[in-house]
Design a protein around this nucleic acid. Structure first.
Lengths: 148, 148
DNA sequence: ATGGGTGCAAAGGATTTGCAACATT
DNA sequence: AATGTTGCAAATCCTTTGCACCCAT
C-alpha cells in the first residue's frame, strides 16, 4: 500500500497527513541515505511542482521535534535527516561527507525518558567519524594523503 | 605556570604555539562551558585587541582537525568547542541550548583507530538531548508547558 | 627573503521569518 | 468563518575565502 507507513506514523504522532508531509516522510522512510533538505527538495519537486524549500525545511524540523524523524547534525555544514527511528549508530566520512548506518554496533536504545544529573534525557545519539570504505579505496589508487 | 598545558598540547601535536593559538587553547582548557566561536572571540578580544574572528574560526577548526580540541555539532545553529579530550558524554538542552558534561555516564573511549564495515573510525561521540536541570526548575515555577 | 600566521572585507550559503494565498473542516 | 498549511521573497547570520600585511626564522 502506498505511503501507508508514513500515514500511520504521522497520525500516530498527532500530525495531520497533508500531501506534502506524507510525501516527505514517505521519501525519508524509503531513502535511507540521510538526505539533507536540498536533496529531499530536489527529489520531490518533480512530483509536487508547487513544493517550496521552505516547506521542506519546516516540515523536516517539525518531524524531528515530534520524533517522527531524526535530525542528524554531525556535518557542521548542513543538517540531514533519517527516517529510521530504530536505535543505530551513524558513521560520518570526513572526506566525502556521506553518512552511513551501522546496525551491528552497540547503539543507545532509549525506551523511556530518564534523569541524569537532574537533567531530563529524551534522546540519545552515538556517532563515529573517520574515512569511509569508498574513500579508503580511492586513496589507495592515488598517492598517500594525510588525514587528521 | 601560565598556559603551560596549552603550550604542551600544541607542541606535542606539531602546532606552532603562536600568541593567538596559545591564548585560544588556554581559554578552551580553562573554560569548560563549551563556548562557540563568538563567545571565545568576545572573551579574548579585550586581552588581544587585534584578534579577528576569522582567526578564531580558523584556529578552532584547525584544533579540531588535529585532535587538540573537540568540535561539538549537536546544536544545529552553531558549532561549539570543548578543550577536554578525555572521553565523556555531552548533554544538550533543547530549551536553553547549553551543553553540559556528563562524566559519570559510560562514554566511548577511543584508544586507537579501528575498522567497522570497512570504514576507518578515528572519532566517537555520544550525546544526550533533553531539558536541563535549570530549565526544568524554571518551568515548575510557571505553568506547565509541553516539550516534544 | 621566505614561509607561515593573522586579519580585514567581501562572498557564500544554509536556514528562518513575515506575510499573503490557500486549503480544509 | 476559522484554523491550520503552504510558499514566495526577503532577511538573518554563521562560516569561509581572497588577499594583503606582518612576523619569525
Amino acid at each position: 500500500m502506498e505511503k501507508a507507513d508514513a500515514y500511520k506514523r504521522l497520525t500516530e504522532h498527532g500530525i495531520r497527513p497533508s500531501l506534502q508531509r506524507l510525501a516527505i516522510l514517505d521519501y525519508l522512510i524509503k531513502h535511507t541515505n540521510h538526505p539533507n533538505v536540498d536533496e529531499v527538495y530536489q527529489a520531490m519537486c518533480h512530483d509536487i511542482p508547487t513544493l517550496s524549500k521552505t516547506t521542506v525545511y519546516n516540515t523536516l524540523r517539525m518531524f524531528a521535534d515530534n520524533h517522527v524523524a531524526q535530525m542528524i547534525t554531525i556535518d557542521d555544514h548542513r543538517v540531514c535527516y533519517d527516517g529510521n527511528m530504530n536505535p543505530h549508530v551513524h558513521f560520518y566520512c570526513k572526506n566525502c561527507g556521506k553518512v552511513y548506518d551501522l546496525f551491528d554496533e552497540p547503539a543507545p536504545a532509549l525506551k523511556n525518558d530518564f534523569m541524569v544529573d537532574g537533567h531530563l534525557v529524551s534522546e540519545e545519539q552515538l556517532y563515529y567519524k573517520g574515512i569511509c570504505k569508498d574513500c579508503l579505496a580511492k586513496d589507495k589508487e592515488k598517492t598517500k594523503q594525510r588525514y587528521s
